[in-house]
Amino acid sequence: MCKDCGCSITRDHSHEHDHHHDHSHDHSHEHDHSHAHGHSHHHDHGTVRSNPQLNDKKTLSVIHKILDKNDHEAAHNRAHFEAHNITAFNLMSSPGSGKTTLLEHLKEYTDLNYGVVEGDLETSRDADRLTAKGIPAFQIQTGSACHLDAFMVHDALHHVDLAPLDICFVENVGNLVCPASYDVGTHYNIVLVSVPEGDDKIEKYPVMFRKADLVLITKADLLQHFDFSVEEARAQVKRLNPEAEVITTSIKDGDSMRAVVEWLNSHRSV
């Protein structure tokens, strides 16, 4: 039992902890990540060397990931999704790139049941838009926090009925910087960049695009009105993150929406 919230996934320390790591080992694609995390625990109390000049001073060598607690919670969330056979996707972009619009329209192209955990500073407008379309959605209002972390997503998951879902999206706070540093416990990252934003955003926000498994160039129906070079955008993604796929999409182009659905289907790992 999860002691904070009573859900069925454990996140106790000590022995349960080890078990938990084995779990993420098997299923998570962030294998190295979890491993490093487990390893760092061996250093927990570090090597203590007494300073010969000052007897009451000591230097403690630790190599510990600063966002360790978040990463641990993220592994817990992933296990929670996996227990329900759900693949989870973290949607990130600047505000207004079309994350919610994409989720609203995806339903017309797929039979997959999906739910959405929404993150915004204020209002439940996005969750309301999705709910109006019959898509189960839960809104997290972050107040002034610029990103979602694994703890916020964990709390939100207790308000979502996961049983009927095949996939779950976490729609992060619109921001191309901060969300990139936080593993929220999804399996894949999808980063959107819309045509009006310009093709230079990839080079300007390398950390975010480095995290992407899929880059969606959205609002492609506007390409004729903007100096956005799809070719340049693809080249920039390749320089930073050669394994990421790039799909050009528009909600007005059914084929492009089907391409997104196909990608989602081929990444349903669980």
Binding site: G46, K57, T59, S61, H64, K65, S181, R210, K238
Partner: peptide
């Protein structure tokens, strides 16, 4: 080649602490 791996440069680590112990 694109077949590379980032071995350093993406980390965010606590490395070392200097402490004064209670006597």
């Amino acid at each position: 080649s694109y077949e590379t791996r980032i071995i350093e440069g993406e980390e965010l680590l606590l490395m070392q602490l200097e402490l004064e112990t209670d006597e």
